[in-house]
Design a protein around this nucleic acid. Sequence first.
DNA 1: TCGCAAAGTCAATATTGTTGACATCGCAGG
DNA 2: CCTGCGATGTCAACAATATTGACTTTGCGA
Lengths: 185, 185
Amino acid sequence: MGGERRTARESVAAAAADLFAEQGYARTTIREIAARASVDPALVIRYSGSKEALFVDAMTSRAGAALDLDGPLDGLGERIVRYVLEADDGLRSTYLALVRASDADRVGSLLRTFHDEAFVSPLLARLTGPDREVRARLVAAMVGGLMYALWTVGDDALRAVPTAQVVDVYAPGIQRLVTRRGDRP
Amino acid sequence: MGGERRTARESVAAAAADLFAEQGYARTTIREIAARASVDPALVIRYSGSKEALFVDAMTSRAGAALDLDGPLDGLGERIVRYVLEADDGLRSTYLALVRASDADRVGSLLRTFHDEAFVSPLLARLTGPDREVRARLVAAMVGGLMYALWTVGDDALRAVPTAQVVDVYAPGIQRLVTRRGDRP
DNA sequence: TCGCAAAGTCAATATTGTTGACATCGCAGG
DNA sequence: CCTGCGATGTCAACAATATTGACTTTGCGA
């Protein structure tokens, strides 16, 4: 319970986090993690109990970056789109690894938590109005859609479009949900 | 090349399609498929060459349902949203299986094809204007976002919202991209 | 009827995650 | 100082997996 001193467990955790993010769950082997951490394969299992648990731990440690929604409500749609378009490899590989391993129960619920804490909750905190819950969840869906198209599907044609143009086309739809507005035109 | 008579290859193909859709790629074993088809495990490999190739074949046979975009452009946003919300298990399980196995190269490119043929191309055919390509791809992203939130993430709170309300909130954003409109208000 | 290619079977292999039995080390208590 | 003892690590083995090589069976045309 208390506190670990240093290396050993830590280097296994680091190796796991790196390799899982680089190669995903399926392509990464326990023995590979053990090798990188200079440790016996059996030991890395002893630590976490199972490969799945190790994966969940590793991804939990990486899933810290939540969406920053401070600042005026006005430019929020644009800032959100830019956030995804300019995201670093860290977010992309974490997202991909989680999505692709999400048929394991514990990973699925981690993805749900990640989605909630990174997108839905921060949005909910800034929205007002009667249907703010639905709007927050649908904004999160739009953000997820962008990540899905760019990363999961890998739409190269979309990736090639200049940031400014994607912002111009996609952001208004998000902004409309952020700053209320009549449902039907 | 000509034509198979009936059972054997066919029953393996059927068993594979069913099991992969039900359980996904990782949880489905070659031996399980063989058992359901009453066939030797080695044989099912002999047919397709590898588990991955078998998966690609099976999913290709299931990925036929493209989005129907006939009818007036006006209600199109609403019809698209309804299409996803009221989709049958077939589309959902095909989508999930593809997404979760998409780190295998051939599956990834199948997912790209599926995304393109089912959503981007039909949309492109109906849109006009200079940036129609970007708009089509971003509408596809919005559709993907809905599937992502509902199915990959499994946002129960969103799933519990009445169809009409989701349509009211989400469809206008899609409709705006379908029927042109100034980028900035 | 014979022969031969296609179809199917069987046993073996390499790789995986995981576990049980053992070894080793650090350190508190006599 | 030594003696245990629990934590930490190691080794070999296990069961399950996809895949392959050698073999047998079968259907069918010459």
